[in-house]
Design a protein around this nucleic acid. Sequence first.
RNA 1: GGUCCGGUAGCUCAGUCGGUAGAGCAUUUGACUUUUAAUCAAAGGGUCCCGGGUUCGAGUCCCGGCCGGAUCACCA
Length: 489
Amino acid sequence: MRPIFQERNMSEELSGNEYRQQRIENMRKLEEAGFPAFGQAFERTATLAELHAEFELEKTVKACGRIIAMRKMGKMAFAHISDGSDKFQLMVKKDLLGEETFAAFKLLDIGDIIGVEGDLFITQTEEQTVRVNSWTLLSKALLPLPEKWHGLQDVETRYRQRSLDLISNPEVMDVFKKRTQVMREIRAFLDSRGYFEVETPMLQQIAGGAAAKPFKAYYNALSIDVFMRIAPELYLKRLIVGGMDRVYEMNRNFRNEGLDRTHNPEFTCLEIYQAYGDMRTMQELIQSMFTHLATTIFGKMEFEWMGNTINLQTPWREVAYHDLIKEHLGTDWFEKSLDDAKAKAAELDVHIEAGMDFKTVTHEIYDKTIEGTLIQPTFITRLPKELVPLANACADDPELVDVFELIIGGKEIAPAYSELNNPIEQRKRFEEQAAGDGSKIDEDFLLALEHGMPPTGGMGIGIDRLLMLLTGSDAIRDVILFPQLKPRG
RNA sequence: GGUCCGGUAGCUCAGUCGGUAGAGCAUUUGACUUUUAAUCAAAGGGUCCCGGGUUCGAGUCCCGGCCGGAUCACCA
């Protein structure tokens, strides 16, 4: 934070701990030896990963990276540098560099960033190595890195200082490279099928499209409150009305709720809408998409997750909600009384509130005892309309809605709907939801709907939870670079 | 929000019954031209999360707080 020259010219030079003081002293000695501590851009001939991949004996190369290990001996030294792509060994010899330059090299600390020029060779222990002819200091590290063997373990420090986490835990870097690849391949897949990526407002005057509390902000120029969006749904449907027949957005949503293992207040969602389609269209789409991701990025269809093996081989199982319930609770379940259902809930240790009706009790039991057992990909279809208020009814049963919930690894990964396109019905449900507060009804959306929206299939996929599944992470914080944390006390 | 667990050197972790604060890595000094958790010898390094209390004496026991983790509840 503070300028380094100030540190060096004042008594503050000795501030900080022992390690920092020693490194500042080393920096001073290096500068005296003609190695400025913070260098210029360095033109490397290859990244360290490329150096390994295209290894050629005695080729002269320029490489750079952070020193992550050093083994100094009297007249030679070995070091490993890392550049985020891989690590590579360096060998430094006194007779090649000369007395002063070799001595200066030994003043380098672990964490320093250097550039080297040298020739490739293979050591007696058969490791590809650069025999250094010259080197330059690119950046001095004033603070030490975490321990080389155990890395950075402290969970809190890992999230608060992600830079250190990435430096010392290579598997963390892998997870976030996978994250970027997954998002890139999702876009490639959808683009190749003619879906059009759009960006809709994050600052909204009415935060609609889901039932969640929004974050509030204030817009000075208009003197109005605005809200961070909780979902892009109502804007994407306007685009369907407008004739963008296949449209998607993959971006952040914000919900003003608590933090836990599967919730971060900002999270990434993919929402897809397809005119003239329905829930079935989305069913085909997501199976193809996941197959594409699994084969192109991971090269496999089976994933280990929390001690289970998940097989993404399609077609995935489909089961109607009522059949699933009967499977677990008995074929006569839906003939039972409310009291019987409550007794069963008590037996299963499922918490029940006083005023719950039969359908709600049934769903509580499903939520707590059935969903978690669905490890392999499962589409649950034909849900009671009370559970999913914004979907079209099934053609053959007005009590059920034409939707699916995709469960993988015992968690809901994606819901999809045959979307409600009746503006009169939509207004009615908004009014019920708003509970008398007309300012919460999105009139602009209803106006669009009244111009006619074709039958539409829609789907939402929680990208963070998908990544947890694909990378074997059990916490959403492990797939978000900078998760929300309380301010340090 | 409730309950339980944790916070000790830069990092990873021990710390017994309440009695001088420990190890490994890292650091410093010395030796060492094929090491790779380099090795060998020696040395330095602590706001024991914070604040109270009990006690002759607290890292340790008690109370309050902060941060993190697990779990339940709430919220989708």
